[in-house]
Amino acid sequence: MRWFLKLFFLGAASMAVLVCCKTNREANRTGVNVLSGEESEDLKNRIEDIKKVFFLCPSPAEMLGDIDINKFDYQSWFLNPKDNADTYLDMKTQTLNLGIYITDLAYNALFGRHQETLDYFETVQTLSEKIRVTGAINDEMIRRVKDNAVNLDSLFAISNEAFMNMVSYCEKNSRSNTISLLSIGAFIESLYLAINMAAEFQETDQLINHLAEQKYALDNLVSFAETMPDDKSVSGLLVDMKPIRDIYEQLQTEGGQTVVKKDSTNKLVVSGGKKIVLSEKDFLRLKQETGKIRNKITGNSGT
């Protein structure tokens, strides 16, 4: 009996050691050498072929916050109605629409629509609990929204915090696919809202530039989603997004080299580089395809 117990505990301890060493060994096999010639020989010798890569994307509030909102009027009819939330029954639809709603929440917060912000906060809270992302929005946050009736920066910050909490919760619980669906839903809605803010196409418009530059966020979202090839929900969504990806892939670029300079305060200033150009034809195609996928996700008719 004593020997059996000894063996059992020795086995348990060995298993624990093996489990925690596995990740590094796997990473070792799949890595890429990243050192350049200018680095010290010591560092070169030390670093093994291990490389971890993360693809990150701005929050919906940051994506919409990049637009000069003062030039536009608040248009509630573009938002996904709160009542639709009850009609989303499966986990994939709920997660995608949570991304849609959290973007609508950010839109309300950016326009300082206090009551609407509060309403969408409650919808986001309900839907996040349905997909078991609990605690991302709690009663304390709702109270802060209520208390910040006129403080726009606080509304913006709280809506951003809600999204970051959700991502953090999913990371904690190894739910990368949820992060992917949530982020893609948020991206589609921010694109949809931005496109519909532009009443007509003007090539030099800041909003048109913003739409073109969303290629960078899309690239990161797609690269992140492609790390989950076995997840049918994520890979199916990538197929749905293909028309939008195709439009962005064939956009023309112009401009020259990136220049980095230090200013008098020692701050690095990055200027130049390529500029992505969105033509009127591409804008109209993007508007149509974004409307299609957005309405497919929300279950709304029309574009």
Binding site: G31, V34, L35, I47, I50, K51, V53, E62, A217, V270
Partner: peptide
């Protein structure tokens, strides 16, 4: 760990 190299791909507005 000091043996790793990490790349973070980010979007800067």
């Amino acid at each position: 760990s000091p043996l790793d190299s990490v790349d973070l791909n980010i979007v800067m507005y």
